[in-house]
Write a protein that binds this DNA or RNA. Structure first.
Lengths: 219, 219, 219, 219
DNA sequence: CTCTAAACGAGACGGTACGTCCAGTCTTCGG
DNA sequence: CCGAAGACTGGACGTACCGTCTCGTTTAGAG
């Protein structure tokens, strides 16, 4: 790109002016902070090793010594600022809990986390091990909370106990994530309620397999 | 990237050697063909305008005169080779039809189409109009066939007639696509059958909304 | 150059909007005018066929059909606006006349004519015929006036009659042109007077060949 | 220019295949050598940064890191191969020495040096500092030798001692250079002898200023 | 407390791709 | 059917980054 903006990489400096020279953890923190700032400012797609190094006032070699590439670096940076995995308040009703969980996820996707997810998905396939890492982060930003919600519902007797471990459990999160990837943020409230009322709750309460009578009755 | 392969852009030439000079549609076809070949060979991530131009034996300016960038070019190329929207055979049973449709989609995702979807998702947010375009292509590679399947089931009396128009209709495709994005191809057969048997069919046959008495009844 | 200014070649249009289509002389005039405007605005070095065509609201082929290249086009454009060959006033004294002629030439070189000369010199060698053309223009912008001055001096008896036809006649102009090419415009007054007083006049008045006694005296 | 020769930049390689990576002076020499070879092969007008980089087996960025542009790069390359400033043999006679010096210069202008001079003159005016540099190179390829010749003549008593420092000293070289610029190389022998016999020697031997009585005496 | 080995900062290096400009040539279509 | 208008092929531009590599310098930590 022929210089869309003439910025000479003259980033504001956190003024850990050189000397004393940072190492180990201090250095790593400076780098991860720089990554998060870049993520916030220009997004994942335009984040470059060059700018991260400049912003962290270190050299590119220092980055490559620790991370194989941009994707891994960014994943680590996000792991570091671990968004506290805010857990969902217990409202005592499954529907309300699920809505809260989805709204929380929706909000998270609207931040740089969403952009990040989008970007990482394209780079996932290089290395299966890395793919696993990303899935964990992505899922953490998903099924984690909802599992709690489901188990509470089981304890209250709202749900059959096999449900939280079944494939159905993740459907709401998957659909929401899917909607984000196709339509972007912000996700309209109506989409969330539709997912919950038209799909998720009916699904959770449906019998384990399709009623054999559905077809049989007609036949 | 410091030359993962040293090829000096010496691509096989279809030998439409210069003169007569191609214009308009003929030229456009040559370009779109080149795009598809590149897609198949190196994938979306490593497809470059430079190589496409070289392969189509034209100049970059000709590409940029027609498309604003790589993403739009690729989308057009895919629209052109419209993968014939192979329709699902009518087996007379909903479950079998759905399985066939998902297997078809799964196969499609395993080709360069999957890679493409992955790549385009990161570039979607620049321009809403472009986002819409991509969604259409992506959906075409999805809900299209399954709608047919569902309507046939309705006609056979297997399904309530409101189902194909409801949000539930797209769930299977969304889950499959979601799985591809997170886990890549090939998608194991077991995942497909689980989606169908544990989620999709029960969902399609569940009552329109969650039984309001769900908790009360059981308690 | 990656667009030093984003101008999309959207030049001010003389609004001979297309249709009726111009031809022959009308078109030619529009082109030559465009050339002169470009020359004035960006100079010879940055004058391009592309911009000229755009400015004249025509196509490049129209230019190439009439002129082999930029150099010839520009020369023609200058021939058209023929700078009236302002002749030197007769002061009755050789020195004053010569000074006036050189100052006139110096002034001309300081305009786009100088820039033009500079540019054309680099493109002269392609075609001897064209080289001749340029030399004529260049000389016209030089020896023409001074010949008059010299002949007047001959008539007054200030000069020997063989001088105007000798190689010495052109020396002043050659030196001035040379100075311009090496040092650019404006040429300091002192340079002009030095050329006249230290070189040109002594030379004009010197005997036809070196006094054979110069060396002989010493020997 | 649409490929005057179809060569795909497959230049002969000096096979300093990568590693050890060249730096500093070694690299610079390789580049300057490449420049000189390109100059000799295609001339200044068709010398491109792209080809120089390819020939030197380096990247364009490396060139631009060191030189602002083509002109500066070429000037440096010429400074490097400093054409040994071949000095003029002492024949013991001014006329013969001058002729030798001019013939030498004439020969030099007929090589790529002449082409170079021509090309650089058009790019001189961007930066006065650069203009100074070029003048030095150009003069070096000129007045240097002739100064020696003149001083020897002074020592022999052939010339007055004020001559070598006067503006007259450079006239022969200026006229020769001027002739080259207008008529190109090769410069006919007759032009050289005319400059020497009809202009330069008479001028050198003429009195310091024009006889004040020039007109009066005759009248 | 000294000395050595590793890590750091800085940035050069070889290289790919970008998106733009322009040169010349060829085609189409209007007058 | 000529010629105006403009699309085409293709080279080069100057920049941004990539990932590697070389320099000194600084700083731990072993002796």
């Amino acid at each position: 790109m022929p210089s869309i903006n003439g910025d000479a990489l003259d980033l504001p400096v956190g003024d850990h002016r050189r000397n004393p020279r940072r190492r180990g953890e201090a250095l790593e923190n400076a780098i991860l902070t720089a990554v998060l700032e870049e993520l916030a400012e220009v997004g994942y797609a335009r984040l470059t090793m060059e700018r991260v190094a400049a912003r962290a006032r270190t050299g590119k070699a220092t980055l490559y010594r620790r991370w194989p590439g941009r994707a891994e670096l960014v994943v680590d940076a996000c792991a570091a600022n671990r968004l506290s995995e805010a857990d969902v308040p217990d409202t005592g009703v499954l529907r309300t809990d699920v809505l809260a969980a989805l709204r929380q996820l929706s909000a998270k996707l609207a931040t740089s986390h969403g952009d990040l997810l989008r970007g990482l998905l394209t780079e996932i396939m290089h290395d299966p091990e890395f793919a696993r890492l990303v899935r964990e982060r992505v899922h953490t930003a998903g099924p984690g909370p909802i599992q709690g919600v489901l188990w509470r519902a089981v304890r209250r007797g709202e749900l059959a106990s096999w449900v939280p471990a079944s494939r159905r459990a993740g459907v709401a999160v998957d659909l929401l994530r899917n909607h984000y990837l196709l339509y972007g943020a912000p996700i309209p409230e109506s989409v969330i309620t539709e997912i919950v009322d038209d799909v998720y709750l009916p699904l959770l309460l449906a019998p384990p397999t399709a009623p054999p009578t559905a077809l049989g009755d007609e036949a």
